[in-house]
Simulated scan of single mutants.
Amino acid sequence: AAARDMGEAPYLHSTPDGYGVREADWLSPPAMAKRIRFAMGIAAGRTPLARADAVPDKPAQDASAPQKPAWATGEACAPDLATVYRLVGPLSPNTTAAAAQLQGKALIGFTLASPEFMRR
């Protein structure tokens, strides 16, 4: 749902070249607002993330039992700042200065909505 809300639903791009990855493709006020809401939802726990270690590696024994998709079988996890920093990579001096007064969930959301994350 989040990818659709941000205008990048899987398999729905009208041409085979995929969604744009240049800054001009995502740097607009509406696109940034959507990405910021998504990043803050992750930081606040409103957008759950599945734990990779909670996904089963084999199907249930009873083939007649309803099967959940792999992403729905694990516990939700919350991102921690160290993992977010590792994912995003080095922040520019401007981004670092802008984040100087933030902490906790606000800093995680800010980092996930940063230009550095958008360029990854």
Rank of each mutant, 00 (worst) to 15 (best):
A2D: 07
A2R: 06
A2L: 00
R4E: 12
D5K: 00
M6V: 01
M6R: 05
G7C: 01
E8Y: 10
A9P: 00
A9F: 04
P10N: 07
L12Q: 10
L12N: 04
H13P: 01
S14I: 02
T15H: 12
D17G: 11
Y19N: 04
G20P: 01
V21F: 07
V21W: 10
R22P: 01
R22N: 11
A24H: 12
D25W: 04
D25K: 01
D25H: 07
W26C: 03
W26F: 13
L27C: 07
P29F: 01
P29G: 03
A31G: 09
A33N: 05
K34S: 05
R35G: 04
I36W: 03
M40Q: 13
G41K: 02
G41M: 08
G41Q: 08
I42W: 01
R46T: 06
R46L: 05
T47C: 00
T47I: 08
T47V: 05
L49H: 03
R51S: 15
R51H: 05
R51Q: 11
R51Y: 06
A52F: 08
D53C: 14
D53K: 12
D53S: 15
A54I: 05
A54G: 15
V55R: 15
K58N: 10
P59L: 15
P59Q: 14
A60H: 11
D62S: 13
A63C: 13
S64G: 14
P66G: 09
Q67W: 06
K68L: 14
K68H: 10
P69G: 07
P69V: 04
W71T: 01
T73G: 02
G74D: 03
A76V: 05
A76C: 00
A78R: 12
A78V: 04
P79S: 09
P79D: 10
P79G: 11
A82G: 11
Y85G: 14
Y85K: 13
R86V: 09
L87G: 05
L87M: 11
L87K: 09
V88N: 08
G89T: 10
P90H: 07
P90F: 03
P93C: 11
P93T: 07
P93N: 01
P93K: 12
P93R: 13
N94T: 11
T95V: 06
T95G: 03
T96F: 01
A97N: 12
A97T: 06
A98C: 01
A99Q: 05
A100D: 11
Q101F: 09
L102W: 09
L102F: 12
Q103I: 02
Q103C: 09
G104I: 09
L107W: 09
L107I: 07
L107N: 08
G109P: 02
G109Q: 04
F110H: 14
A113N: 04
P115E: 14
M118R: 12
R119T: 03
R119D: 11
R119P: 00
